[in-house]
Design a protein around this nucleic acid. Structure first.
Length: 497
RNA sequence: GGCGCGGUAGCCAAGUGGUAAGGCAGAGGCCUGCAAAGCCUUUAUUCGGCGGUUCGAUUCCGCCCCGCGCCUCCA
């Protein structure tokens, strides 16, 4: 079955394939770098990452563009408060965001593009709209988009705007009084006192919210491209306005397919600072939660379904990752009898087939996960019965590789990331937020594999001599460093906590 | 008010017109110097409630209850 993906534009699940060649051209709205990323942000980015990885595994090539919004009201306000240029202010959060992406094993897009580096492209787009009479300049110098010129306005958000002309109410913000119609939105904002602005052919000012995405998407992907993705809140007005701007300018379909990721709940409620359930990735890591647990939890519910992010769920996800990693370690470290068991190869192949079928079905990650757990259970059982042989291991590991090409949780880099986060917290004077659990997990990152191996060897020797007192002491010593040592009938093995 | 999504075991959650995947947790057992890891058995006569269609509905329709989202800069 070809890849099926829900399209917010048509409201239907449709086959998704690139229009030209084998290259998928897509744009995903990135962060506004005014603060550290929270788990809600990362649900969206993880979902897009799953899309990316599935397309790649399906043999597609990608041109994935993500914007970084490095100028907006909040950025200007916060930078002014700190008395630093906005570029300095945003650089810090952009760096933090990229680090967080890495911690969550989110692949980098082929191109990351900053709003402030594409001002000329935006101006050109606005000028084009002005020429067509779709953009107009208000008395204060701001430019607006005239929605009445775009009959299809509302086609993405399925809103009916007829009869909703100028509302005479007091809903309009002070800087919007110049608009001809209440629905019109800003393309270019004239500078206010103390605001960063650019001198341009259409006058001084700064970009409206939506224009950057239209300009950058078309710059790198062309006037018409395959897919546009983002959080569900962006559907209106952001994406609706992007369509209006772009299609009015070019007369062509902007993005053919639209993907929107649903918001998550935290402990059953919408995440908000006032409810006290607002968490950045860094908050959670400092509390002692591994990035891999967070990633798995974010992927465990299909992207179109509301995900209830809870601390209980985080523990469950951590245990699930443990089971998967234990399985991989077992395959890699056990002594296997010579031979081949066609049944094992069949189980491996079947699991991958099922996983991919689930992903082809609108990225059903929950079902894909089930396929891989079936493999784990079946192969563990076969191994206990001595039915797994040396010749089967490559195929089984290959299946796990295929799984991890999508889910990205088997490689254990948690300790390193936790350590980096702990160090960041110290630099930022957030020491009081560092939990004992985080410290313990960070500790094992200071222990190289060679260090561990040396102690493991010491443990094994003592054990061989049935000096359990010494062997247990070494094991406890390792545990105190965040290393778990296990003895199995097939030998000794270790892993980081 | 307009538009939309969802309510499945203790928790997370998939799914289908023919009688409920998977994960986590719990219980019992096997294995084991200990500790783990792993395996086996077990945990929803039932899928928010009430009606309807049907030989048969958790799955289709209607109503009701509950939760949630968007409706101008929050992913």
């Amino acid at each position: 079955m070809p890849f099926q993906l829900f399209n917010s534009l048509s409201g239907k699940t449709e086959e998704f394939a690139p229009a030209q060649d084998n290259l998928v051209r897509f744009y995903a709205c990135g962060p506004t770098v005014y603060d550290y990323g929270h788990i809600g942000n990362f649900r969206t980015f993880v979902a897009v990452d799953v899309l990316r990885r599935h397309l790649l595994q399906s043999g597609r090539q990608l041109l994935h563009v993500m914007n970084i919004t490095d100028v907006d009201d909040k950025i200007i306000r916060n930078a002014n408060q700190k008395g630093v240029p906005i570029g300095e202010y945003t650089a810090k959060f952009e760096k933090a965001f990229l680090e967080d992406m890495d911690a969550l094993a989110i692949q980098q897009p082929e191109r990351i593009s900053r709003a402030t580096e594409n001002i000329p492209e935006m101006i050109a787009l606005i000028q084009g709209l002005a020429k067509k009479g779709v953009a107009y300049q208000a008395e204060d110098g701001s430019w607006y988009y005239r929605i009445s010129k775009f009959p299809e306005y509302g086609k993405l958000s399925k809103k009916d705007f007829t009869g909703l002309i100028t509302d005479g109410s007091g809903r309009m913000d002070a800087d919007e009084y110049e608009k001809d119609d209440a629905r019109d939105f800003a393309l270019w904002k004239a500078p206010k006192e103390g605001e960063t602005s650019w001198d341009t052919a259409i006058g001084p000012g700064r970009p409206g919210w939506h224009i950057e995405c239209s300009a950058m998407a078309m710059k790198y992907l062309g006037e018409s491209f395959d897919l546009h993705a983002g959080g569900e809140d962006l559907l209106f007005p952001h994406h609706e306005n992007e369509i209006a701007q772009s299609e009015a300018a070019t007369g062509k379909t902007f993005a053919r397919h639209w993907m929107h990721v649903r918001f998550l709940l935290v402990e059953g409620q919408k995440m908000s600072k006032s409810l006290g359930n607002f968490y950045t990735l860094r908050d959670l890591v400092l509390m002692g939660h591994k990035p891999s647990s967070i990633r798995l939890l974010l992927m465990s519910v299909p992207y179109r379904k509301q995900l209830n992010f809870t601390f209980d769920g985080l523990v469950q996800a951590a245990n699930s990752v443990e089971r998967l990693r234990n399985f991989k370690i077992r395959l890699e470290t056990s002594q296997w009898a010579e031979g081949n068991n066609p049944e094992a190869a069949a189980v491996a192949k079947n699991a991958v087939t099922e996983m991919r079928a689930a992903l082809d079905d609108d990225l059903n990650t929950a079902q894909a996960l089930a396929a891989i757990f079936d493999l784990v259970r079946d192969v563990n059982a076969m191994a206990d019965q001595g039915k797994v042989t040396k010749g089967d291991i490559p195929a089984l590991l290959e299946a796990l590789t295929k799984f991890d090409e999508i889910f990205g949780v088997l490689q254990d880099h948690d300790a390193t990331h936790i350590k980096a986060t702990v160090e960041w917290a110290r630099r930022e004077n957030r020491e009081e937020k560092i939990s004992a659990a985080a410290l313990e997990m960070a500790q094992s990152a200071s222990f190289s594999d060679a260090d561990v191996e040396a102690l493991v060897a010491k443990h094994s020797e003592a054990r061989k001599a049935r000096d359990f007192k010494t062997s247990d002491a070494v094991r406890d010593e390792l545990l105190a460093q965040g290393i778990i040592l296990e003895n199995t009938k097939d030998g000794v093995r270790w892993k980081r906590k």
